[in-house]
Design a protein around this nucleic acid. Structure first.
Lengths: 337, 337
DNA sequence: CTGAAAGCGCTTACAG
DNA sequence: CTGAAAGCGCTTACAG
C-alpha cells in the first residue's frame, strides 16, 4: 500500500491535451473567476473542458497554486489545550467558517506557555499560513505585539490583549450577571475563583462581579486558580475555610465543578448551603448531580466570527473587535432550598 | 496590515547568490540528508551556506517542496467530534507525534455521518494529504473498505473495522474488568448502556461485560444510546424502570454521568443503591460529586501510536494493529455504603 | 566537490 | 476567444 502505487491525479495539462486546448485556457475556465471563464473560452470549449475535468476527476493541486500565487489558504490556530471543551468548541466554529471560505486550518496546543506559543507560531509560519487565530493570548500582550509588529495577519479569540482585533464574550457583563443574581438571592459574603491571572476572560469576569458588589458597598474575596477541576477544588477549599462565603463564582465550569466537590467534601450542600456558579455553560453543567448555574457564552459563534474577522484582515479591511452577549442560565446550584 | 506588506522570505536562490554557489548546492547542504550534505560541498562552503541561511532566516517553502517531491508531509484526521474530550485527547497524541515526524495535521469533524465522512475525506485528499487517520470508523466498514481499495494510506484509531490497521484500547477486556468488579460486589441484575451500534468501542466493551456475566450463567440487559450525557440519562431512565438493575455499566463517561443524573432523579443514591461505572476515565470522573468508577484507556498514547502506525504504512512497511491495555479505576460510584 | 538543466502544476501578464 | 511563455521555489538525475 505504498504511496507509489497510486496513479497520478489529473492535471491541467492532462485536460488540455484531452480537450485540445492550451493549459492556460483550462486554468481560466476551471479555476478562474466566472468572468475570467466567460472571457477565456466559448460556451462549447468551456463545456468540453468541464466535462473532461469531471471525467478525469480533476482537483487543482494546492501546492502548485500556493507556490504560484503566494497564498496558501491556510490558517494556523493556537489554543491552550484542545482537550478543553471550551477551546475545542471555539475551534469547531473556526474550522466550520474556514471550510466555507475554502481555507484549511492547523490547530496546535500552546499549554499557555510562552515558549510553546512562540515555537508553534513559527511552525505555522514556516508552513506558510496566510494568517493566525490566537485563542491563547496573554493579557500582557508581549507576544502578540511582536507578531503585530512583524505585520503578520492575525486575530484573537476568547481572550483579548493589547487592543488587537478580537472576538470575545462580553465577560465583564457576564460577571455582573452572576453578581446581580447572587445579590437577588441575598448573598452578601461571596468569593470568586478567578482563574489564571494572564487570561482576560478570568480578569474581566472577576472585574464585572466585583464591581457590581462594590456598587452595593460589599467586598469580594478573590483567589487565582488553574482553569481545571483540580484548580477549582483547591481554590474553593481555601475559600471555604478562610472566607466562609455563602456563594462562590468560578470563572469557568470546570473550576466550578471542582468547587462543588470541595463544598461536598466540607459536608455542605451545594445550592442549599453554598451557592456555586460557573461560566460557559458547558454541556455537562446541566447534567451534573447538582445542575450548575452558569453563564452561557456563544463559543461556536465566537470561533466562526473570529475566522470571519481574520478574512477581513486578509482582505486588507479594517477589523472591528466584537464582544458577544452572555446569558445567565440559573440552575439548582444557586437555588436556596 | 495587508499581506502585500510583508517582505519576501529568503529562498535557496537568495542564499546561493549571497554565498556565490549554485542553488543545487544550497539545497543539498540545507535540505538534504547529512550524507548528501557532506558530499555536496566542502566544510567551508557548507558552513558559509548555513551561516547565510541563518542570517537570512531561511525556511524551506513547503509548497515548492511538496510540488516537486509529490509528498506533502500532511495527514488528515477525521473524528466524530473534537469537542468530545476523548477524541480531542487522542488527537493531541496524533498531533504530538506528527510534529515529531515533521508532519502537520488537518482535523475535521464527521459527526459520525457517512456523507460528512466522505466529504471531509475528499477535502483532505484534495489538499493532498499523504495519509489519513480515521477516529470515526463505522463497524460495518463500508467506507474504509472503499478507501483501502483506492490504495489511500490510512489507519484507524479508537475504533477498529474490517481488519484494517488500527490502534485501539482492548475494549473487550475493559468490559470484562467492569463485569468482574460488579460480580465481586455481588451484583447479579445488571445493565449496559451500550452506546451507538456502529462503534466497535461500545460493541466490544458490551461484549466483554456480557460474556463475563454469561460465564456465571447471568443475563445482562443492554440498551443502545448516544455517547453523550443526554443519551446516557435517557437510557438509564428506561433501564431503571424496566429492569431495576443494581449496577449499570455505561460504555463511556459522559453516558455514565447522564446515568448518575437519572439515578438521582429516581431518588436513588449512586453507589449506594445503584452502582454506575463508565469508560475512559475522563479528567472529570474523579472530580464528580460522586466520583465515578471508570476504565482508564490510554487516549493520548493511542493517538501517538496511530500516527506512528501511519508512518509505517507510508514507508511501505507492514502495519500491525495494536490493542492497548485498559485499567479499572474504582471510585465511590460503585462502592457499597 | 560543484553546477546546469529540467520539471513538479499552477497563474497571469502579454500578444494576437 | 485562445495561446505561448515565464516563473513561483524547490529536488534530482546527469555531467564533469
Amino acid at each position: 500500500m505504498g504511496r507509489e502505487d497510486r496513479k497520478r491525479p489529473a492535471t491541467l495539462r492532462t485536460i488540455a491535451q484531452s480537450a485540445g486546448v492550451d493549459v492556460s485556457t483550462v486554468s481560466r475556465v476551471l479555476n478562474g473567476s466566472p468572468e475570467d471563464a466567460a472571457r477565456a473560452a466559448s460556451r462549447e470549449t468551456a463545456d468540453a473542458i468541464r466535462e473532461w475535468a469531471a471525467r478525469l476527476d480533476y482537483r487543482p493541486n494546492p501546492h502548485a497554486k500556493s507556490l504560484r500565487t503566494q497564498r496558501s489558504n491556510l490558517v494556523g490556530v493556537l489554543v491552550p489545550r484542545l482537550s478543553d471543551v471550551v477551546l475545542a468548541t471555539i475551534y469547531e466554529g473556526i474550522e466550520d467558517a474556514a471550510a466555507r471560505h475554502g481555507f484549511a486550518t492547523f490547530v496546535m496546543n500552546s499549554h499557555d506557555r510562552p515558549d510553546e506559543q512562540r515555537a508553534r507560531t513559527e511552525l505555522a509560519l514556516s508552513r506558510r499560513v496566510d494568517g493566525l487565530v490566537f485563542g491563547d493570548a496573554h493579557h500582557d500582550g508581549g507576544f502578540v505585539d511582536e507578531i503585530a509588529q512583524r505585520r503578520i495577519p492575525f486575530v484573537l479569540v476568547s481572550r483579548h490583549a493589547g487592543g488587537h482585533p478580537s472576538v470575545t464574550c462580553d465577560d465583564y457583563r457576564g460577571g455582573r450577571l452572576v453578581a446581580a443574581h447572587f445579590l437577588e438571592r441575598g448573598h452578601r459574603r461571596t468569593a470568586v475563583i478567578a482563574g489564571e491571572p494572564f487570561a482576560s476572560t478570568g480578569i474581566d469576569r472577576t472585574a464585572g462581579f466585583v464591581d457590581r458588589y462594590r456598587e452595593e458597598g460589599l467586598d469580594v474575596a478573590t483567589v487565582h486558580s488553574r482553569f481545571d477541576t483540580a484548580g477549582g477544588h483547591q481554590a474553593a477549599e481555601q475559600l471555604l475555610t478562610e472566607v466562609e462565603p455563602t456563594a462562590i463564582f468560578a470563572v469557568n465550569d470546570f473550576a466550578a465543578i471542582g468547587a462543588l466537590g470541595a463544598v461536598r467534601d466540607a459536608r455542605l450542600r451545594p445550592g442549599a448551603d453554598v451557592a456555586v456558579a460557573g461560566f460557559n455553560d458547558t454541556p455537562l453543567a446541566a447534567e451534573l448531580p447538582v445542575p450548575l448555574t452558569s453563564v452561557r457564552s456563544p463559543m461556536h459563534e465566537m470561533g466562526r466570527r473570529a475566522l470571519e474577522l481574520l478574512m477581513t484582515v486578509l482582505d486588507g479591511g479594517t477589523p472591528e473587535s466584537q464582544r458577544l452577549e452572555p446569558e445567565l442560565i440559573v440552575r439548582a446550584s444557586t437555588a436556596r432550598p
